[in-house]
Design a protein around this nucleic acid. Sequence first.
DNA 1: GTCTATAAAGAGATAGAC
DNA 2: GTCTATCTCTTTATAGAC
Lengths: 188, 188
Amino acid sequence: MALQTVDDKALLEVLFDIFRCHGYEGTSISQLAEATGLKKSSLYHRFPAGKDDMVKAVIRYVSAELHQHVIGPLLDNQKPPEQRFNAMLDTVKAIYGDGRKNCLLNALSLGSVKDDIKQLLNKDYQAWLVALTQLGLEIGYTQQEAEQKAQHFLVAVQGALVIQRVTDNPLIFENCMALEQKSYFQAI
Amino acid sequence: MALQTVDDKALLEVLFDIFRCHGYEGTSISQLAEATGLKKSSLYHRFPAGKDDMVKAVIRYVSAELHQHVIGPLLDNQKPPEQRFNAMLDTVKAIYGDGRKNCLLNALSLGSVKDDIKQLLNKDYQAWLVALTQLGLEIGYTQQEAEQKAQHFLVAVQGALVIQRVTDNPLIFENCMALEQKSYFQAI
DNA sequence: GTCTATAAAGAGATAGAC
DNA sequence: GTCTATCTCTTTATAGAC
């Protein structure tokens, strides 16, 4: 069999996909080896500390994507707020495969989670929350209103992903996001 | 060491607690044995098909509790709708330990879930949704409005549990539920 | 109905050849 | 950087004594 050579980004995408689906405890190295096409020892070569290193690399990767494609555009005040919110919605739909794919925040916070991993997850959540809050302030909401709207949206994202998964109804996520769009721009 | 004798309800409560925390793939029989105080072989005696049997028993148990303490009271039209909604909120807070404990719907729908298990979960979700929709119709919402309000509430429950878990902020769930209470009784 | 003991498979992890 | 081979520990599952 020919040697596998897998570039970092493609590798991380595969690991990401497994971890977001099965969570930390539900993912095994063998599973990751099979999905990536690499042997277990090759994974250990790249990630000496094992699953822990892999999951941290995945979080770093996803965090960078989040900042680049979600948070950055959200804070770019060249464009009107509503347009930025709608662009975020499109990106979010793509990230979560129209609601068919889970969020790392959910999958990796299940079970016994090490503190450092939970802190990484929380940091990304807070960054997203702050960016959305900032958008709310631009629109004219008070600090409290803006925070509430931002949190409400992120709660809806997580909840819609769970409900779509449970019901296998592929429209849940999209419909929820449409409702959140409306309610975000509706005075309290 | 004295023999353990564990009655069914207490046993199921312990299994429930482990499964809702770690999910199906993240839970091991050894873990369940330790938590219940029974030996692994004793668990296999009660649940011959192993983890599958255990998880189904847990779902049946939780489903019964849901119907008895949530859905039943929700449909009991002796009391005014708002009072029933608020009572549900209290029960829900207790079930989820004020947001510190996860929902089975989330934990057990993660990873590779067998179809029969997912169907059991979906059935419980639908029952809750229908009961809440019924309450909305009583209040005077149209069918569509009532369904939307019901789904929105259940999405918020799941989302708030995830966000509270990620942030370790013990007020998230309570605050979200308070907001949902308001918005449920607010005309669209 | 619970226990001890054990078998068989899988998971995490490492050594060393290429 | 990837591979084969191997080791250890955990997990699932069963047999049989009490």
